[in-house]
Amino acid sequence: MTEPGFGEKEELTEEEYRRRLRRSLLVGGAASFLGYRGWRWVQDQPKADGIPQVLRDGHEFNERIWSSLFREGHDAKEFPLSDASILRVNGTLGIRSELNLDGWELQVFGPDGDHLGTHTLDDIMALPHHDMTIEHKCIEGWAQVTNWGGARFSDFMALYEDQLPDDISDVYLETPDRRYYVTVDIETMRHRQTLLAYDNLGVPISERNGAPLRLATPLKYGIKQIKRIGEIHFRREQGRDYWGERGYDYYAGL
């Protein structure tokens, strides 16, 4: 019936079986106990930003794998414009105060906290305009095809080329009220599908979707695509991240 070999006899006598049973129960019991201890070990880990340390390490392990697969030329899929609709609103953290469009400006800082520049929306709109129809993905599980128009972050960053050191690894962005903030790795920020967006489906982004300027990229979940950007900081190491600090993966890449 079964193939010979692999170290197990085809048949045991009653005597042999009894020994086998005893051993199996012992080994099985010990293995179950170890399994249980392992589970407790995970549960009893010190918390690292809301989740057990070992799971946080696991997120970072995943990040290393997937970010090493990341290729600059590798784009997220784009869709026909006819599939797109105005993005569903989800979350108003950081944009609850009233928006003063005339008073809005974008502040830019270097890695040592040095103030590098201030921009109005016209400055951003003066950069080459790009638009993309992509599938926006929320970490909660829903996805929607939408269209973003704006300036590539790489074009914006080029304005500061001379002032920035070579070892910028991350970009930190926060809302004017500082209640929402994200850090995104520089590879993603420089990607051609990462926009400082001011249009959604050809019309100015609505207030609840992040007017006047938000981050838009199909390479990250929506939690990273901060609305109503107030400040941009170029950094040499990972900075704070609202949802990362609350148990989510800091990388959140797709």
């Binding site: 997937w66 697969l69 990341f70 590798h74 784009d75 997220a76 899929k77 599938e135 993905k137 599980g141 996805a143 199909p218 390479l219 890449g253 797709l254």
Partner: peptide, 20 residues
């Protein structure tokens, strides 16, 4: 999990939402 990096796989399964 990684619909961009593994776009071929996602495509084979009919896209992101179908795969879900």
């Amino acid at each position: 999990f990684k619909p961009t990096q593994l776009s071929f796989l996602t495509w084979m399964l009919g896209g992101y939402e179908t795969a879900r």
